[in-house]
């Protein structure tokens, strides 16, 4: 493994900001993995650190297949992570909305440009991503419907679901989209959590990455084949919006199997504790996404359910 600085910048008073890359193997640029790009993506940072740790062990054991280079960038925004901010410490811009970047542009455009320059020519790209709404997911692979996506490949992670989603205009500046447009097969792994470390879901995520590497013959490491992935589109998910606001008293979470009429949650009056709304499942299915903040706004996505 070679550890190298792929971007370095001086700050007026803080320590230098450095983006580190961990390079394994030699040969064709086969796989690039990018971890936390936002300061609260602690789960993604942890997951990526475990990928690096396991790759080092495999390298020591001689189990990296020859002819492949793997690059891991565990963190691209620890200047924000160290001060509990989600977006860039100075101007609150989002590095993951700056791709493909611009080396002569603003700070986060430069960071994005430096990262993209390093990861753009790889055959496969994996981003450990987080979602803009607070909640827990079933671990899954997410791909954008750019016309370049390859669903068959996504199944090699062995995660229960592959979600394909039409990009919206604001998606055109994220890493995953640009990876695909520039010819890399790109996947986003959602392990279910962001600002806390959930060891179980993190392990599901990193094992899925090793399963993918094994299936793509990048590593020689036998492991459980995982599950047969079910491919979903956004429209396949039943969305339940909150019809009231208040304290959210959740009874069911991501991964739970439910039947029509099951009580999923209650929204409570924050003063009297009385139930303002009982949220019942309109379908039989599995909860794919569950809002998990203790307070809930009206008209907010509470659950997304995969229909049976």
């Amino acid at each position: 493994m070679k550890q190298e600085i792929i971007f370095r910048m001086k700050s007026p008073y803080r320590d230098d900001f450095k983006v580190w890359g961990f390079r394994f193997g030699e040969g064709k640029k086969t796989l690039a993995i990018v971890g936390a790009m936002r300061g609260d993506e602690v789960q993604q940072q942890f997951t990526c650190s475990q990928v690096v740790k396991n790759l080092m062990e495999l390298e020591d054991a001689g189990k990296l297949m020859p002819g492949h280079e793997i690059l891991v960038i565990p963190s691209a925004n620890h200047f924000s992570m160290n001060i509990n901010k989600r977006f860039w410490a100075m101007d609150n811009t989002d590095i993951n909305r700056m791709f493909p970047g611009y080396e002569k542009g603003e700070t986060t455009q430069r960071i994005a440009a430096a990262i993209f320059e390093q990861v753009r020519d790889y055959k496969y790209g994996i981003q450990l991503a987080s979602f803009y709404m607070p909640g827990e997911f079933i671990p899954h692979v997410r791909m954008m419907d750019t016309g370049y996506q390859n669903l068959k490949l996504a199944k090699n992670f062995g995660l229960p679901y592959v979600l394909v989603r039409k990009p919206r205009p604001y998606d055109t500046t994220v890493l995953n989209y640009n990876w695909q447009v520039f010819g890399t097969q790109a996947f986003s792994i959602y392990s279910g959590d962001t600002d806390i470390i959930n060891k179980d879901s993190a392990k599901i995520a990193w094992l899925s990455i090793f399963r993918f590497m094994h299936n793509m013959k990048i590593i020689d490491h036998n492991m459980h084949p995982g599950t047969c992935s079910y491919v979903l589109k956004d429209d396949d998910l039943e969305t339940i919006l909150s019809n009231q606001s208040g304290i959210l008293y959740s009874l069911r979470g991501a991964g739970d199997e439910i039947k029509t009429g099951d009580l999923l949650a209650k929204i409570l009056d924050p003063f009297t504790g009385e139930t303002r709304s009982s949220i019942l499942s309109p379908v039989d299915g599995t909860i794919f996404f569950a809002h998990h903040q203790p307070l809930i706004h009206q008209n907010t996505v509470m659950f997304r359910i995969v229909r049976f």
Partner: peptide
């Protein structure tokens, strides 16, 4: 006009 969690509407 949408409800916020505690005694307030987003107006």
């Amino acid at each position: 006009s949408e409800g916020l969690p505690v005694d307030e509407q987003l107006l």
